[in-house]
Design a protein around this nucleic acid. Structure first.
Length: 695
RNA sequence: GCCCUUGUAGCUCAACGGUAGAGCGCGCGGCUCAUAAUCGCUCGGUUACAGGUUCGAAUCCUGUCGAGGGCACCA
């Protein structure tokens, strides 16, 4: 039996679930369901990467232990996957991998030992001890990466973003992986197997990266600087660092180096790694080299997909406030509509645009008006004209001419070949990760059947008993097409397809029907159809959009201070629509809904790795100071703000940013179009009491 | 700075050396089985700009302008 193993990246457990996590897992889910239908023996992995300095830091920030932190995040991810029916219970992933699992420790330890035993392609030792040099911040007790320090002009010594003090150049003992010996081997593999890295443009980037020359890779840290990790075998003063630990999950999960899990021999030889384009290099150059060093095969396919941008094509970001919120999707849209949208809208491998409005338009046009309506009109006619039983589809010779007069080809071969061709094309495209095109071919079929119905006019045929056979044929062809579509679309829309299938009166488990074996005519005449219910209810765009906007005022009405120019423009433009026929005024009641209060900044500090956000604790005269995040880091030094009295929007719905809850917003002045001076915090000339309300 | 991709209808994209097309939106007409659905027709493009190669260029080449991406230890 052919096997198929697919993985998503294991998501780093320092931030809450977002669209990126959902998207990749959802695509993998669709692919694996398709392969299962086709009879492949499949395995589907997703999970969390739970070690490293960033987890330690996230844990500290949230007053948790690292273990509590990763339990929390992986729990949230699992909850999201469950909500979107991507978990095992709902026929989704086979394993939710966690790098803190004991079997993973065992597996990685054995992988390390195995790598050590071998030589590189150039005959050198694979792992050696050396010194890792980096910029170290003593108060943080940590090495700083490029985005965690800044270099002031005229100085060579970078400053820590948190402590604003110069970093020390420190070297630390570290194990190194001799990546530099693998360049030729990697290039050879890629050249001989050009489809292993896709899409092609990304493959070329990897190739040119390798050709620049590879440096050896530090694969451990001293325990005193990074404690949260897997110990290096036989050297307890070191823990393994990020990539070796994380990447190897793909094999430990199927039993490499441990006896708890099984399936390595079966599954590893045909694995597809789905990754975001931002981590492609690690999944090719690093990962393949580790595998080669351990004497293992490199993956069959590594596919780098694009990123979701907002409706205007800008990157999504917390500070921009243009993020697609998972709970909004969950609250307002059918899971199947979301699945369809992401697979149809993004040409896989390129970036795609995601806006709630686009989602609604797609769902209404393609699902409600397209597939849903075809299903509805077909089933209704069968109920009405044929007493809810599927009629026979054959047209006998005496009726040939009559059929032709009604625009119907008596020979069903034409439709048979249309369906077969669409099916083949769909499968081919799907296998080739061209989901958008795959779906398009099926929608051409829908269009064709809609046209057939309009041409034949069943409501006219029904009036004359002489046309009974022609009417039967029209209804049968439409119903049979729906059966095919249900089977083909199952991986994309598991629930809706099953519903349509059931409404046709069929009771098989659609997830087990191989679309390759679909045969025209297998829908049996006489089958009693089930109750017809709208599978894709039409979405009231104005209503849903206004609900979404009300639900998250911060995202759509108030732009956080100090933001991107275009963002303010677009935000303003969007808001004109709902209020288009109103005067551009609000009432005093509207204004009083906004609770503006005076607060004193008690704590102001930078957030690691966030270049725009500052974290504040602000006293509003309440029991405890509030934690508020604001995008001011580019304009103010946090220390200078402590003690300052500012205007705070006190009743803004709290929201998570960078894993921290922001319980309000600080008011600052800036031009709508973002030109001019930096944003200025609103303050008072006279002395004011903390907690006083502005009105 | 170096390298790569890209610029086609209002929007999203297809045509990859041979008459520029599709979907959505807009406008008109038809139909009533259907979720204001569906069917037909119309409107709509100096293919960013300027040169060049060619019998013929959206397509190949050069340049200009615009957009996006890659250039290592962060998932």
């Amino acid at each position: 039996m052919k096997t198929f193993y697919i993985t998503t990246p294991i998501y780093y457990a320092n931030s809450l679930p977002h669209l990126g996590h959902l998207y990749t897992t959802l695509v993998a889910d669709a692919i694996v369901r398709h392969k299962r239908q086709r009879g492949f023996d499949t395995f589907f992995l997703t999970g969390t990467d739970e070690h490293g300095i960033n987890i330690q830091r996230a844990a500290e920030t949230n007053n948790r232990t690292p273990k509590e932190q990763v339990d929390y995040i992986s729990g949230e991810l699992k909850r999201m996957f469950h909500d979107f029916r991507l978990d095992t219970e709902n026929g989704g992933y086979d394993i939710f991998m966690r790098t803190t699992a004991p079997f993973h420790y065992e597996g990685v330890t054995n992988l390390w030992r195995e790598i050590c035993k071998n030589k590189t392609p150039k005959g050198n030792s694979t792992i050696y001890k050396g010194f890792y040099e980096g910029w170290f911040c003593a108060p943080c007790a940590a090495f700083k990466l490029e985005d965690e320090y800044k270099i002031i002009e005229g100085s060579d010594i970078p400053l820590c973003l948190i402590h604003e003090r110069p970093l020390d150049k420190v070297s630390e003992e570290s194990y190194f992986f001799r990546l530099s010996d693998y360049d030729e081997t990697l290039l050879k593999i890629i050249e001989e197997n050009p489809n292993k890295i896709r899409p092609e443009a990304r493959k070329n980037e990897v190739v040119s990266f390798i050709k620049q020359g590879l440096q050896d890779l530090s694969i451990s840290r001293e325990k005193k600087s990074v404690s949260w990790g897997i110990p290096v075998p036989d050297d307890p003063n070191h823990v393994m660092y990020v990539w070796l630990d994380a990447l190897s999950n793909y094999i430990t999960a199927i039993g490499y180096g441990n006896s708890e899990k099984t399936g390595f021999d079966k599954y590893w030889q045909n694995v597809t790694h789905l990754v975001g384009k931002d981590i492609l290099r690690f999944h090719t150059i690093y990962w393949w080299s580790f595998l080669l060093a351990a004497g293992l095969e490199v993956p069959e396919t590594v596919y780098a997909h694009g990123m979701w941008l907002d409706a205007e094509g800008r990157k999504m970001g917390k500070t921009l406030g243009n993020v697609i919120e998972i709970d909004v999707l969950q609250a307002h849209f059918q899971t199947d509509a979301i699945r369809y949208f992401v697979l149809r809208e993004m040409v896989f491998g390129q970036d795609g645009k995601f806006g709630y409005e686009n989602l609604i338009e797609r769902a209404n046009a393609d699902l409600a008006s397209g597939l849903g309506n075809l299903s509805s009109r077909t089933l209704t006619m069968i109920t009405k004209y044929r007493d809810s039983a599927i009629p026979g589809g054959k047209i006998s010779e005496p009726n040939y001419l009559n059929a032709k007069r009604h625009g119907i080809n008596a020979d069903e071969q034409e439709l048979v070949s249309v369906l077969a061709h669409a099916r083949d094309e769909f499968i081919r495209r799907f296998d080739n990760f061209e989901f958008s095109h795959a779906l398009e071919t099926l929608w051409n079929v829908i269009k064709r059947i809609d046209t057939m119905i309009s041409d034949a006019k069943p409501w006219v045929l029904a009036k004359d008993e002489e046309n009974a056979q022609i009417l039967n044929a029209v209804l049968y062809r439409s119903a049979e097409t729906l059966r095919w579509l249900s089977v083909l679309l199952y991986p994309v829309m598991p629930e809706a397809s099953a519903q349509i299938y059931a409404q046709l009166g069929l009771s098989d488990d659609i997830s087990k029907i191989n679309p390759e074996n679909l045969t025209y005519g297998e829908l049996r005449a006489g089958t009693k159809i089930g109750a017809s219910v709208a599978v894709f209810p039409r979405i009231d765009k104005n209503k849903v959009m206004s609900e979404i906007q009300q639900g998250q005022p911060m995202d759509n009405t108030l732009s956080p201070v100090g933001e991107d120019k275009k963002s303010s423009e677009k935000t303003a433009a969007n808001n004109e629509q709902p209020a288009a026929n109103e005067e551009n005024f609000i009432t005093i009641d509207d204004f009083l809904k906004v609770e503006l209060r005076v607060g004193e900044i008690k704590i102001a500090e930078r957030i690691p790795k966030a270049d725009k956000l500052l974290r504040f604790e602000i006293d509003l005269g309440e029991e405890k100071p509030r934690q508020i995040l604001a995008g001011l880091a580019e304009y103010y030094e946090p220390e200078t703000l402590i003690g300052r009295k500012v205007v705070v929007v006190a009743n803004l719905k709290p929201r998570m940013m960078r894993g921290l809850e922001s319980q309000g917003m600080i008011c600052a002045a800036s031009l709508e179009d973002g030109t001019g001076e930096n944003p200025a915090l609103a303050t008072f000339i006279e002395n004011v009491d903390i907690g006083a309300r502005l009105k």
